[in-house]
Each structure stands twice: as structure tokens, then as C-alpha cells.
């Protein structure tokens, strides 16, 4: 194997491993479920993309042709990761998972649970209780 090929494969593998590690650290360390959802669904998909790119290059070097399996795995993950994230965010919204304190417009969660269009926020009133924007 030539040095350049090995260097490219190693760099792809290293970037993939670093992205996966960052995504898992984000999953452990972030504060809120909605923020925590952000870390692994992006970073881990990107990290797995790096490992898959390295694997495609290495197998192409080994066999002389690109097998369809890695491309299938890449396609499948790119399609399914946003679907999973969307369904998990929907579950969290309907179960009223606790929000972070800094979250802006938390009353829109109730509007979204009732599937109403978002209403403009009235900042003058102190009554920011949930469900005040229901009269549509």
C-alpha cells in the first residue's frame, strides 16, 4: 500500500473516531434532552461516515472494486438518523420532558402539542403559564 493511500485512510479513520467521541461526550455532558439529542445524531453520523469512507477506500485497495455494501450502509444511516431523531424529539415533547432554564418561549411546547399555529408571544404580561395561547 502506498504511503499516500495509507495517510488518507488513517486521516479519515481518525476524524471519524474523533467525531464519534465528541458526539458521545456531548450525549453525556449536555444539560437537556433536546440539546442532548443534537450531539449524537449529527456527530455520530458524521463519524460513522468517516469510518465508512476509510473502509470503502481500504476495500477498494484490497479488492480492486467498490462493493455495494458500504454504500448501502451509508445511504441507510443518512436516511434513518433524522427519522429517529424526529420521532424521539416528538416523544419528548409529548411526554413534557423537562426543559433547560434558558430555553426561550417554553410555552410554545403546549401550542405544538395541540398542533396549533404558533402565536406571537406577549412579553408585557407576566402570565407565561402554559396553555394561554389556546384561544384560536
Amino acid at each position: 500500500m502506498s504511503f499516500l493511500m495509507e495517510l488518507i485512510i488513517s486521516l479519515l479513520l481518525l476524524s471519524g473516531g474523533i467525531f464519534v467521541l465528541v458526539g458521545s461526550i456531548g450525549l453525556l455532558r449536555l444539560q437537556d434532552f433536546y440539546v442532548r439529542l443534537h450531539a449524537p445524531t449529527k456527530a455520530t453520523t458524521l463519524g460513522l461516515g468517516g469510518v465508512l469512507g476509510a473502509s470503502i477506500l481500504y476495500m477498494y485497495h484490497l479488492q480492486g472494486y467498490v462493493s455495494i455494501n458500504e454504500l448501502l450502509i451509508t445511504l441507510f444511516l443518512v436516511i434513518t438518523a433524522p427519522v429517529t431523531a424526529h420521532i424521539l424529539a416528538k416523544v419528548a415533547m409529548h411526554h413534557r420532558v423537562k426543559l433547560m432554564e434558558r430555553t426561550r418561549n417554553p410555552e410554545l411546547v403546549e401550542t405544538s402539542r395541540a398542533q396549533l399555529p404558533p402565536t406571537p408571544i406577549d412579553n408585557s404580561s407576566d402570565d407565561k403559564k402554559a396553555g394561554t395561547n389556546r384561544e384560536v
Binding site: 479513520l13 449524537p40 465508512l52 424521539l88 416523544v91 423537562k98
Partner: peptide
């Protein structure tokens, strides 16, 4: 703290184990 966190962690574990299996394939050529 919530069960959705556990589902998300399980999903991330699936993806990381896929990466580990691919790496094992590279290691064994």
C-alpha cells in the same frame, strides 16, 4: 433521567457498534 434519554443512548450505541464492526473488518482485512 427520562426514558427518552435511554432510547437515545441505545440508538447511539447501535451506531457506535456499527463503526466498531467496520473497524474490525479493516483490521482483519
Amino acid at each position: 433521567p427520562h426514558i427518552v434519554d435511554r432510547i437515545l443512548a441505545l440508538d447511539t450505541m447501535y451506531i457506535n457498534s456499527i463503526a466498531l464492526i467496520l473497524l474490525y473488518g479493516i483490521f482483519n482485512q
